[in-house]
């Protein structure tokens, strides 16, 4: 066992940047880690980037320790380079638990890192607790497209354990007004950045419509079955004076452009009204809906996860409900 048990553990959080600042998950990891560390534990952050001194100080207003890897090789995220850079830190500091976010970047980084660090990995946690009198960690995550939850137990290795947390699932901790933590500059090994080199960043293509500005969105998913059927949601959107948005499979099939995709690998929208038509409600899709809109779900599966987050639901065939709704709206508008 590592010298730390789950009682008052030492926890290391690998934080993410977003643009020029810190990602929201940096504070969600802190919130989760503080709750697990208790009074006697300690919570540190590892920050990688180029010219990130300011961000390190910001983190030190909440974290006890901040280990900074400031190097050109970390200017853009590279899960491979991060894993190589952080393995020695984990070895030296011996945290009982390592946390990262289950984001695209976390997915790129955490699995390989966990193997290098010799720790088991609990992915995509919705909750995380100490279990078995402090000898194990217990997490809940979604399986089978969100229709089922699984309680997983993880026994740490000699080196500890690791978990990735779903963005938005844990309450963020607020940073304090003062810098109270210690900031440490870390060396970066020569092997870091070998084998994988960044070439360029690809910005999303410009488009005529901007669904992020729309007040009303009619979002369509795989339930639409065929490109030709899109017409019925297009005329519903028209009747409502809104825009058509969609889930990822609709873009993957080439039926609608990426500029209409809502979700963690698409756009984040904040409309007043969101109609989800034939969309199951995966967390990657729902993760792109912000600002608590009035959410209406139309789905023929009463157990679809979308009904768990919607305000109003219709369990039915979209090919009946959507045209009926359009007719009533046009009637109501006169």
């Amino acid at each position: 066992m590592s010298t730390n048990t789950n009682q008052n553990p030492k926890i290391l959080c690998v934080v993410e940047r977003a643009g020029a600042g810190l990602d929201d998950t940096a504070w969600e990891l802190l919130g989760a880690a503080r709750a697990l560390a208790g009074e006697g534990g300690s919570v540190g952050a590892a920050l990688l980037g180029e010219g990130v001194g300011e961000l390190a100080n910001e983190l030190a207003r909440g974290y006890d320790d901040v280990w900074v890897f400031d190097d050109a090789r970390f200017a853009s995220w590279d899960g491979e380079a991060y894993a190589r850079a952080l393995a020695p830190l984990a070895q030296r500091e011996q945290p009982a638990l390592i946390l990262a976010a289950h984001t695209n970047l976390g997915i790129d980084f955490a699995p390989g890192f966990s193997v290098r660090a010799g720790v088991p990995l609990l992915p995509d946690c919705l909750s995380l607790e100490s279990a078995g009198d402090g000898s194990a960690w217990e997490a809940v995550r979604t399986v089978y497209g969100g229709k089922v939850h699984a309680r997983m137990t993880c026994t740490p290795s000699e080196q500890g354990a690791m978990a990735t947390l779903r963005a938005g699932a844990f309450a963020a901790a607020e940073p304090g007004a003062e810098v109270t933590g210690r900031v440490h500059a870390e060396d970066v090994g020569d092997d870091v950045g070998q084998g994988r080199r960044p070439v360029r960043t690809v910005e999303p293509e410009a488009s005529e419509v901007d669904i992020t500005q729309a007040a009303v969105l009619v979002a369509v998913g795989r339930g639409i079955e065929d490109e030709e059927n899109l017409e019925i949601v297009q005329s519903l959107a028209e009747a409502l004076g809104g825009e058509v948005a969609c889930s990822r499979p609709v873009v993957d099939k080439g039926w609608l452009p990426k500029s209409r995709q809502v979700g963690t690998s698409g756009l984040t929208v904040k409309p007043k009204v969101y109609l989800a038509v034939g969309i199951s409600g995966s967390f990657q899709h729902v993760g792109g809906i912000k600002g608590s809109p009035f959410l209406v779900a139309i789905n023929k599966d009463a157990r679809a996860p979308i009904f768990g987050v919607a305000d109003v639901g219709v369990v039915g065939d979209l090919f009946d409900v959507v045209p009926a709704l359009e007719a009533k709206i046009r009637e109501a508008k006169g």
Binding site: G19, S76, W77, N104, P198, R200, T201, V202, P204
Partner: peptide, 11 residues
């Protein structure tokens, strides 16, 4: 796919 709807090319 990386962060914030961006994509990156790597070699």
């Amino acid at each position: 796919e990386v962060e914030g709807g961006l994509e990156r090319v790597v070699e």
